[in-house]
Amino acid sequence: MDSYNQQLSQRYADEHLATRLREALLAEGLNPDQLTLDDIAAIDQLHVGGRRSSRQLADLAEFLPGQQVLDLGCGTGGSSRLLVAEYGVQVVGVDITQPFVDVARWLTEATGLTARCHYTCADAQQLPLETASFDAVWCQHTLMNLPDLDQGLREIHRVLKPDGRLLLHEVLQGGNLEPLVFPVPWADDASTSHLHTPTELEQQLRLAGFTPMFQQNVTEDALNWRKKHTEKEARGQIGILTPQLIFGPRFLQMGKHLMANLQQDKVWLMESVWKKY
């Protein structure tokens, strides 16, 4: 693993992650080895919009039962498990952060989904996967972590079957080109933030061999989602199971900065579906 990838991996999670999560689940009166997706919903979707945004994107995919899906940048496996449980697909999750992969395997076993959901620790720019082996690639808040977007898209194109689909829910550069407020969930400063404008991303996708099927800006949805969560927090309706368990105390500041950047039009949330040709 090169220095950048090692830094990225260490930034997202530490070796004590599983222990923290187990202790929190026990404190909530749950059995860490026998869980439901609802039990872990608050820590299961490490992206803006939570399960609602995942379901919205999945509905666009028109999955067929048994299709093979690659969850690229799967984190702790929340989207992988949702796709398996609610859409009947088979999923391989890939993430560069080993503690995330370890937790994904544990939670998937605890929710009884291991037979249809597998994980591996790997670089999205060098996938250890067979060519033309997936019907779809699922990508939520991942492209912003790729220093070489061209290489990442080539790998996605390679592992997709002919006419396979790329499903994106991504953070992009917004219309306001002023500097972002840092830190944010994906970067501590501008040197490790790899945001692209919608036009740049579209150009790169077309060059990599994809054609658009659907695109929409979902920034307003993201802001509304965050507002509802802020109101719940103010009413004391948020328990101890929160993403802060995963990212640590700095998550509160990173989350506030992300929302500020969204409100100031510095970043956008985009949802899109692309087909390999």
Rank of each mutant, 00 (worst) to 15 (best):
H196S: 14
A234M: 13
W186G: 12
L107K: 11
A85C: 12
E231I: 06
R250W: 03
C139R: 10
R165H: 10
T111C: 13
V267H: 12
F247P: 11
A104R: 06
P162M: 04
Q151C: 13
G239Y: 05
F63E: 15
Q90S: 08
E62M: 06
A260K: 12
R206Q: 14
W186R: 06
Q173S: 12
S9M: 06
D14K: 01
G88C: 02
L149M: 03
M254L: 05
N217Q: 04
L143V: 14
W138I: 12
G50E: 01
T192V: 15
L129W: 07
V48I: 07
I43S: 07
Q125L: 08
S3M: 10
R105L: 00
W225K: 13
A187Y: 09
G209C: 06
A132K: 09
Q68M: 06
L166S: 03
V137Q: 12
T120R: 14
I240N: 08
Q173F: 05
K276I: 01
L60K: 14
I238V: 14
E178S: 14
M270L: 12
S79P: 04
E178A: 15
R154P: 06
R235S: 14
Q125G: 06
A132W: 03
L72I: 08
T76H: 03
V89Q: 09
P249R: 00
A27S: 07
R154I: 02
L17G: 00
A122T: 02
R158G: 11
P249V: 00
R55H: 15
A115K: 02
G88K: 10
P99I: 01
L168D: 04
H169P: 00
R250E: 15
I43M: 09
L17N: 05
S133C: 11
L146C: 10
Q204M: 05
D59W: 02
A24D: 08
T111N: 07
